[in-house]
Every structure is written in C-alpha cells, then in structure tokens.
Amino acid sequence: MPFKEFIEKLSKAKVQKGDIPVWHLYTLGIGGDVFYKGLKEGKIKGAYCEYCNSVILPPRMYCEDCFEKIDKFVDVKGPFIVVAYTELYRDLDDNRLDIPIKVALISVPYAKGGIIHFLNPYQEIENGDIVKPVFNKKRVGSLKDIKYFELKK
C-alpha cells in the first residue's frame, strides 16, 4: 500500500506530472497604449476625468468612480510621492533573494491611483519621500523603460 505510507513531500508520492503551457498577448487598450507610448518618450501619462476633476494613474479610457468615458490624457510631472513600499526577498520561483528588490506604490497628490514600480536599491527611501522616475536611455515602450524611482534632490 505505497499510497498509505507517511510521506513528507508530495514529490515522493506516486504522482502524474503536468504543466500548463499557455502564452498570451495582452492588448494594451486605449489607456495602456497612451501609457506605453509615453514611457517610450520618457514621460508618465495619466488620464484626466473631467467629471471628478482627477488624474487617473495608470491611465484608462474610463473613470471607475464616475463610470464616464475619458478621451483626455495628460503629462504627469509630479511631485511623485512614495505612498508605501516593501522590500521583496523572493523571486518568482520563491527562491530567496540575498539583495531585496524595493517595490513601491508611487503617486501624485492630485491623482487617483499611482504606479507600482521599483525604488533605487541603494537609497534609503521612506514613505512620504518625493522621488522622480529614472528612465533607461534606450526605451522601447515598456513598463521597464523606467529603471526605478529615486530621491529627488
């Protein structure tokens, strides 16, 4: 009765291995397209909802509060403020990282929402600090066109 023996790890049991080989292409959408094109130009773009007079980050073609369509997009120039941050010690395979990745929610005072992105790992940055985006020199229209946010001196 091999299945009834005490087993501490599932890999020691009789199992059928399998995986889910799925690859997707995600349409950026109207708001996402504006955002990604902005990143390629070294800019952070937001949507502007004229009904609640708010900038929405990241930009979307509708306001989730007003449920109104948005066709106005604006440059968001700051001040970018760290709302919350975490130091992440695991990679996607749950392996331990010796040097943590600093991830933050960054926003501007007049916006709904914000941007989830990295902080400069070599700077001491706290909640409430004002930061600025550091863009890569070569930009391709990707979320990682922003290298990270760092303290604004």
Binding site: G32, R90, D94, L143, K144
Partner: peptide
C-alpha cells in the same frame, strides 16, 4: 499591462 511586466513575486502586494 500595468503590474505583471515587472516580473516579481506577487507577495509584494501583501507587503
């Protein structure tokens, strides 16, 4: 589009 491309462990959301 706006978060997953960072390719980081999702426990960061709880953190």
């Amino acid at each position: 589009v706006f978060v997953r491309p960072l390719e980081i462990n999702p426990y960061f959301v709880a953190g």
